[in-house]
Amino acid sequence: MLLWIAGFIILLIKLTIVLGVVLFLAGYLVWVERKFLARLQIRYGPNRAGPFGLLQPIADIVKMITKEDTVPDGADRTFFLIAPAVVALTALLMFSVVPFGKDITLLGQKVPLVVTDLNIGLLFVFAMSSLSVYGVALGGWASNSKYGLLGGIRGAAQMISYELSLGLSLVPIVMMAHSFSMVDIVQAQQRYPFILFQPVAFLIFVVSAMAESKRIPFDLPEAENELVAGYHTEYSGMRFGLFFLGEYVHIMVFGGILAVLFLGGWRGPFLPPVVWLLIKIFLVALFMIWVRGTLPRLRYDQLMTLGWKVLIPLALINILVTGAIGLIFGG
């Protein structure tokens, strides 16, 4: 019993550290994005709060907490209030299956460096990313605003369309690793990262993941020059903050999943595993910010054409080719 309590305390500390680090990094990712994007556009970005604007995320949080939390007239109150929490919750839960190191030993027990090693880890990620559609669609619908509704239905249609190609692009990875568990997938990349075998799946995954996290060039649900801010037009204060947090945690989660599935997870020479994972996440995030600074937004029919007429057939063909090659050469 005593050991159980000690283990529970270790578990609580571990989970709190994970949550704290994810939230901290998501907060600073906002700073990185504003700074890097500003540099790409030849301006300075935030530089007033602290040296190099480093205290900007903290100032943002203080501001969001002290702002008024308005509910527009005629809004569906319940759904309006829970929608941002759904987005933030699903984004944070998705991170729980990303492994960040080998097991370590404490008190004679193995402490795995992953929040939860589900044997259906990858399916859990899909499930959570589908559930976050509810936050977008309900938030947009409940706010009794025309912009909100348009953003919400656009968001729902976009996210479900790209979820198909996201799921299908990862089937070859499951075929090579024989498992949905993220820990096993990292184990399977002991010698070579999967990006060397699956460049097509990698490309499909990157594009779909960017569409899933509603980033430019796929930010039609919140296209600011058509829809003001899309599904979160009517949100203010911390509820807007939760949508915002959800978006940045989403970027980190996709960085983590991309690292685990294609770049060998926490594997790498010299540095500790956690550092390698963070480097890979950071590079993915930088890439996404760079894309945001470079590409214009797609038109809605182009978005749907890309998803349904290019990515889904390509993903299906990639499954067939992987299966054939695996049967011919694989033992």
Partner: peptide, 18 residues
């Protein structure tokens, strides 16, 4: 219910924390 096992229990605790 083992706290040393990265299973459903751990996920539930994490969900509650979030």
């Amino acid at each position: 219910m083992s706290p040393f096992h990265a299973g459903v229990f751990s996920l539930v605790v994490f969900t509650i924390l979030v």
